[in-house]
Structures are given as C-alpha cells and as structure tokens.
C-alpha cells in the first residue's frame, strides 16, 4: 500500500469517525437497542465503491474500535464488528450487480445484513434467542435508514465522479 492510498484511507476513517461522534449526540427516537441512523455507513458505501473489500474492512474496523472508545460503550464494539462484517461481505457481493444509479439498494441490503449480524452477536453474548424478537423492528428501521444513507452516498459518489 503506497502512502497516497494510506492517506486517503485514513482521511476516510477520520471522516467516518467525525460523523459517528456527531451522530452520538442526536437523541434516539426509538427506544430499541441497536436502532440508529448509521450515517457513518455513507463512508462505508463510498469506500466500498472506490476501493476494495479489504480497505473498507480496515476503515470500518478502525472506525468501530475508536468510535466505541469515544462513546465509552465497549459492548457496542462487539455488535459493530459483527454487524459490519456481514454488512461489508453482503455489500461487496452485491456491488458487482448494482450499477451507479441504484447504489441506494446496496446500502439498504447492507443495513439489513448489519442488523442480522448485530442480532447474531447479541444472541451469542446473551446466550438466548429471545433477542430475535427485535429483528423485525431493526429491519424496518434499517431499511429506512439504509435508504437515506444510501441516497447520500450515491449523491456523493456521482458528484465526485462528475468533477
């Protein structure tokens, strides 16, 4: 990896972290654990579009690790890793099918995969399947949030391309 790419990736990580920290300040509307807008996902979609799966995974890993340190919630790190892993794998598989104008689809699927990963980790941590009851709620909110972040990422990618 050359210095130029390293700098770009770390810049993206920094952007993702800033978005993540700002989002922490937004009040949670839905009182269900795991429901959030996930604005940092914009960076994930952007990175996945422009770089490979490995680089995106690195950005996400650093972002989750530092993000959970900043928020002081280390449990969030486990859920973040589980969710993001599935999310990145799912999105990189779908990336081959989806064209530029439908990038928001990628993000919706990413959000759903993320929720499934989160619940899987929660099942493992709590050692019960009772948490699966949250999955439908997470998927409904995840689809909406995923559509929003996907639209943001699509606008960003298309406009940066035009220049």
């Amino acid at each position: 990896m050359d210095v130029k790419k390293l700098t770009k990736l770390s810049l993206l990580t920094a952007v993702a972290l800033i978005i993540f920290v700002i989002e922490l300040r937004l009040p949670n509307i839905v009182p269900i654990p795991g429901v959030k807008l996930g604005l940092a996902n914009i960076v994930t979609v952007y990175a996945l579009y422009n770089y490979g799966i490995r680089d995106t995974a690195m950005i996400c890993a650093v972002r989750i690790f530092l993000g959970s340190l900043f928020s002081g919630n280390l449990m969030a790190m486990l859920f973040g890793f589980g969710g993001s892993l599935l999310c990145i794998i799912g999105m990189s598989l779908l990336k081959k099918v989806v064209t530029d104008k439908y990038l928001w689809l990628l993000s919706i699927f990413g959000a759903v995969f993320h929720n499934i990963g989160q619940i899987a980790v929660a099942c493992a941590v709590m050692q019960t399947f009772a948490v699966i009851g949250y999955l439908p709620f997470l998927i409904v909110t995840g689809c909406i949030a995923g559509f929003f972040t996907g639209m943001c990422a699509q606008l960003l990618i298309l406009r940066l391309k035009m220049r």
Partner: peptide, 19 residues
C-alpha cells in the same frame, strides 16, 4: 435491479408485518 427492489420490498413488508 427490478429483482433486487422486489426483494427489498418483500423483506421490508415482511418485517413490518411481523412487527
């Protein structure tokens, strides 16, 4: 894309109904 959108909608509706 049409197929993907259909899948998306199906997942969303299924989740909404079960919620």
């Amino acid at each position: 894309h049409f197929v993907l959108i259909i899948i998306c909608a199906a997942v969303f509706i299924a989740a909404a109904v079960s919620s």
